[in-house]
Nucleic acid binder design. Structure first.
Length: 480
RNA sequence: CGGGCUGUGGCGCAGCCUGGUAGCGCGCUUGCUUGGGGUGCAAGAGGUCCCGGGUUCGAAUCCCGGCAGCCCGACCA
C-alpha cells in the first residue's frame, strides 16, 4: 500500500494545505514566475462553477459584464491620494514596450477603480445615466512579498464590481446588496459560514469611505477575509471628475462602490472542508458530483458490468470511470483526493442483486442501494452532504468563538495561536474603531477582523482599550 | 523585504561533512497476473544533480553570486 501523499492536519497544517491543493489537482506553483501558480484542471473547474454561481447573481441584480485594459497609466493611480499610497508598494510597472522606454509607464492593474473611474467620467453626464452597474472578470497583479496558492498569489483572478450612483444612500444599498450576494454564495454554495461586518478605518480599502467584508473561519481557527464591498463615497468621482447633472439641474459627483471576490475563495473552500485524505468539495461546487467505478474480473463480467454502469451513470449524471489498466482501488483513491462528493461502486455482485454501492466523501460511509432507487438516493445524499458540510463548518465557527472582557484576556487567548499549531479563535470583545485599538491587537499579531453588522451578543459595552462606550463587540482573530 | 530550511530521473528522498564512473522507493513502459480501497512478478525506459562563476587533474559534493519553493516575521484579496 502506498503512503498517503497528504500530511495530517494535526502534524503540519500548512503542509496539509499544500498537499491537498497538489494532490487534488487544484494548482501547483508556477516556479518559473515568482509567486504565481498554475491553476490545474480540477481547480479551474471549481472556479468555473463558482464564477457561474456568482455571475448569475450579478446579472440578476442588474449588473453587466465589461472588460477594461490590463495596463493602467501610472498617473491614474496617483489621482487618489490614499489609493496610490495603499497600492504603490505592490505594483508591477511596465517601463519598456516595443523596444522603447515609455514616456509614461503603465502599471499592471492591482485593481481597476482608477481606469474605470476614467471611463465613468466619459460615460456619465446625467442622472439618467445612473446607476451605472458594471462588473469585470479579470486577472490582477499585486507584488506580494509572501505567497500561498489560492490564498495570496502575485497574479490572481477575481471579479470586480464597479458602480456609480446619484446618492450616497443608493450606493450604500448597493454595497450591502453585493455583500449579501457574497455571503449567500459562500454559505449556500460553498457551505462556508461567514460573518458580515465593517472593517475598521485602519483596515479599510485604500481610497474607500468604508469597507464591508465577509469573514470565515478555517479549520485551524484562523480568519480568512472572503470578500469585500466598498463604499467609495465620492473619492474616485472627484479624482476622475465623474460629474452628473441631477433632476434639479445641479452638478454633483457620483457616489461609487466596488466589490470583489477572488480565487482566494477556493483556498477558503479547501481549508474549510477538506480532510487528511484530501480535498472535499461541497456538491454544489463539485465539477463531478458523482463518479461511478465499475468492478469486474472476467470478460463476460466486464461486458455486463459496463452495460449496467453506462445505464446508471447516464441516469444519475455520473462520470463513468471506465479507464482500463487501473484497479478499482486506485480509482477510489484518485477520486477521493479530488474531492468528488459521491462515488458509486458497481460490480458483478451488484449486477446480480440489482443493487449498487454508494460512498460519501465527507463521512466515508458506504450504503447499498437498489439500482431502481439510485438516482433519487444520490440526489438526496448530495443535498444532505451540502447541508452537513455547512453545519459542521458552522459548528466549528460557533465552538471557536469566545467572549473576552479585557484586552489581557484577548491577548492570552490569541497570542499562542499560529497557523500550523491551530487553535485559533474568534474573540468577541468590546473595542472601538480607533487606530489605537488596531495597533494594540497587532502587538500579538491579531487583527480586528470586523465590526459585525448584526450583533449576536450583549449589545453595548466599554472599549477594553480606550474605555469609551461602543455599541457592540467586534471580532478579533489571527488571520491569513 | 529580513530570518530559517530546501533544490539530485515525473514524485518523495539518500549521497555532500571527508571531491574520484549518480543511487533507492514510488510512478512510468511492455508482458503475464490481479481486480469490492493504492494487486503481484519479471523485464525495461528515464538524470543539464536549480542557474552562473570560482577552486581543483577532477565538483552533486568545497567557495562566491543569483533564481525558485516552503516556513516564520513585516505588508496584503
Amino acid at each position: 500500500m502506498a503512503e498517503s501523499p497528504i500530511t495530517a492536519r494535526t502534524k503540519d497544517f500548512a503542509a496539509w494545505y499544500q498537499d491537498v491543493v497538489l494532490s487534488g489537482d487544484m494548482a501547483e506553483p508556477a516556479e518559473i514566475v515568482k509567486g504565481c501558480m498554475v491553476i490545474k484542471a480540477n481547480g479551474w473547474a471549481v472556479w468555473e462553477v463558482l464564477q457561474r454561481e456568482l455571475d448569475t447573481r450579478f446579472k440578476e441584480t442588474g449588473h453587466q459584464n465589461m472588460y477594461f485594459p490590463l495596463l493602467i497609466p501610472q498617473s491614474f493611480l496617483q489621482k487618489e491620494a490614499e489609493h496610490v499610497e495603499g497600492f504603490s508598494p505592490e505594483l508591477a510597472v511596465v517601463t519598456i514596450a516595443g523596444g522603447k522606454t515609455l514616456e509614461e509607464p503603465y502599471v499592471i492593474r492591482p485593481t481597476s477603480e482608477t481606469i474605470i473611474g476614467h471611463f465613468f467620467g466619459k460615460w456619465i453626464q446625467s442622472w439618467r445615466d445612473l446607476p451605472m452597474l458594471v462588473n469585470q472578470w479579470a486577472n490582477v497583479m499585486r507584488w506580494e512579498l509572501r505567497t500561498r496558492m489560492f490564498l495570496r498569489t502575485t497574479e490572481f483572478l477575481w471579479q470586480e464590481g464597479h458602480t456609480a450612483h446619484s446618492t450616497h444612500e443608493e450606493a450604500l444599498e448597493e454595497v450591502l446588496r453585493m455583500l449579501d450576494v457574497y455571503a449567500e454564495v459562500s454559505e449556500n454554495v460553498m457551505a462556508v459560514p461567514v460573518i458580515k461586518g465593517v472593517k475598521t478605518k485602519s483596515e479599510k480599502f485604500a481610497g474607500a469611505l468604508r469597507s464591508f467584508c465577509i469573514e470565515s473561519m478555517m479549520q485551524n481557527g484562523l480568519a480568512l477575509q472572503a470578500g469585500t464591498s466598498h463604499d467609495l463615497g465620492q473619492n474616485f468621482g472627484k479624482a476622475f471628475d465623474v460629474q452628473f447633472q441631477s433632476k434639479e439641474g445641479q452638478l454633483d459627483y457620483v457616489w461609487q462602490t466596488s466589490w470583489g471576490v477572488s480565487t482566494r475563495l477556493i483556498g477558503g473552500l479547501i481549508m474549510s472542508h477538506s480532510d487528511d485524505k484530501g480535498l472535499v468539495l461541497p456538491p454544489k461546487l463539485a465539477p463531478n458530483k458523482v463518479v461511478l467505478v465499475p468492478i469486474y474480473r472476467k470478460d463476460e463480467e466486464r461486458a455486463s458490468v459496463l452495460e449496467a454502469a453506462h445505464k446508471i451513470a447516464k441516469e444519475v449524471g455520473a462520470k463513468l470511470d471506465d479507464r482500463e489498466g487501473q484497479t478499482p482501488g486506485a480509482k477510489f483513491y484518485h477520486w477521493e483526493r479530488r474531492g468528488v462528493p459521491v462515488v458509486l461502486e458497481l460490480g458483478p455482485r451488484d449486477v446480480a442483486s440489482g443493487n449498487i454501492v454508494l460512498k460519501r466523501r465527507d463521512t466515508g460511509t458506504k450504503e447499498v442501494v437498489a439500482q431502481a432507487e439510485i438516482a433519487a438516493r444520490v440526489a438526496a445524499v448530495l443535498e444532505q452532504m451540502q447541508t452537513d458540510l455547512y453545519d459542521a463548518a458552522k459548528k466549528r465557527l460557533n465552538d471557536n468563538t469566545v467572549l473576552a472582557n479585557s484586552i489581557g484576556e484577548v491577548e492570552e487567548i490569541l497570542k499562542p495561536v499560529t497557523a500550523e499549531k491551530g487553535g485559533g479563535k474568534f474573540v468577541m470583545v468590546h473595542m472601538k474603531d480607533d487606530a489605537i485599538c488596531d495597533a494594540r491587537v497587532k502587538e500579538f499579531k491579531a487583527t480586528i477582523r470586523c465590526i459585525p453588522l448584526v450583533d449576536e451578543y450583549d449589545g453595548p459595552g466599554k472599549c477594553v482599550v480606550t474605555g469609551e462606550a461602543v455599541d457592540r463587540r467586534v471580532v478579533v482573530a489571527k488571520s491569513y
